[in-house]
C-alpha cells in the first residue's frame, strides 16, 4: 500500500490519459472540419453568409456538432487522468489536483454548450431568419472563447503542481510545466473576441484563432504525452514502495 491506501492506484489512468488525444482527433474532425471551424466565419461578415452555410450543409453541421458534444466528455476523463498523476506529486494536500479536475470538468461544458448552440442553428435553418442563425453562431463562439477562466484554472493548477515536484528527476519535465503555464496565461486574450469583429483579436483573427488554438492543441498533445510517460514511472514507484 502507498499513501493513497489503494492497491492498484493507476488502473484505468492510462485510458483516462488517452482521453486527451482521442478528444483532440475528434475535435479536429467533427468540430473543425465538419463544423467548418478552420477558420470560423468572421464576425465582420454578414448574416446571410452564415445562414447559407447552415442551409446548404445542414447534415454536415448536425453530424459535426452531435459528435463534438458526444466526445466533449473526454475532456473531464482526461482531466481525471492528469489529476491522478498530480496526486503522486502533491506533498501537502490535494488542492491543486482537485482544482485541476474541476477546471477540466467545467471545460467540458465549454465544449458541449457552444456545440448545442451551433446544433440549434442547424436544427431548422430554413425557417429561421439569417440574423437568428448569426445570433446562435455568435453566442456559441462567445461562450467558447470567453469562458477561458475555467480552462485557465485547470491549466495553471496543473503547471504549478508539476513545478512543485521535489524528485531529482521530475515526473513531468519543468519545461513542459512552463509551456503549460504560458498557454494558461495566453488564454485571457480570448476574451477580446467579444469586442472585436475583425482584426487579429477577433474570433477568426491571427492572434485569437491562428495562434491561440494551435498553442492550446499543442498543450493538449504535450501534456497527454508526458502524462502517459509519467504513468509507468509512477507504477514503478508504487511497486518499489510495496
Amino acid at each position: 500500500m502507498d499513501r493513497t491506501g489503494k492497491s492498484n492506484p493507476y488502473r484505468y489512468v492510462r485510458f483516462c490519459a488517452w482521453g486527451g488525444p482521442i478528444l483532440l482527433v475528434a475535435l479536429i474532425f467533427f468540430w473543425g472540419i465538419l463544423g467548418h471551424n478552420i477558420p470560423p466565419y468572421s464576425a465582420a461578415g454578414n448574416a446571410d453568409e452564415i445562414a447559407t452555410h447552415f442551409r446548404e450543409h445542414t447534415s454536415q453541421a448536425r453530424i459535426g456538432m452531435i459528435f463534438t458534444m458526444a466526445f466533449g466528455v473526454f475532456y473531464v476523463i482526461w482531466g481525471l487522468g492528469i489529476s491522478k498523476v498530480m496526486e503522486a506529486i502533491e506533498q501537502d494536500n490535494n488542492v491543486l489536483s482537485t482544482l485541476q479536475l474541476w477546471g477540466a470538468g467545467l471545460t467540458t461544458i465549454v465544449i458541449i454548450l457552444p456545440a448545442s448552440f451551433w446544433l440549434t442553428a442547424a436544427f431548422r435553418p430554413d425557417e429561421l431568419p439569417p440574423q437568428t442563425i448569426q445570433l446562435l453562431y455568435d453566442a456559441g463562439w462567445i461562450f467558447f472563447d470567453c469562458a477561458f477562466s475555467l480552462t485557465m484554472l485547470q491549466i495553471l493548477a496543473m503547471g504549478v503542481c508539476f513545478l512543485g515536484d521535489k524528485r531529482a528527476q521530475p515526473i513531468i519535465p519543468h519545461w513542459v510545466s512552463w509551456y503549460v503555464i504560458w498557454v494558461g496565461c495566453m488564454l485571457p486574450l480570448l476574451g477580446l473576441i467579444s469586442v472585436f469583429k475583425d482584426g487579429p483579436f477577433s474570433r477568426s483573427g491571427l492572434i485569437n484563432y491562428w495562434i491561440e488554438f494551435p498553442i492550446f492543441f499543442l498543450f493538449m498533445l504535450l501534456s497527454s504525452i508526458y502524462v502517459l510517460r509519467a504513468i509507468p514511472k509512477l507504477e514503478n514507484e508504487h511497486a518499489l514502495a510495496n
Binding site: L163, H174, W175, S177, W178, Y179, I181, W182, C185
Partner: peptide, 10 residues
C-alpha cells in the same frame, strides 16, 4: 530557474 522558458515564450 525554469521560469526562463516562460519568459522566453512570453
Amino acid at each position: 530557474p525554469g521560469i526562463i522558458v516562460f519568459i522566453l515564450a512570453d
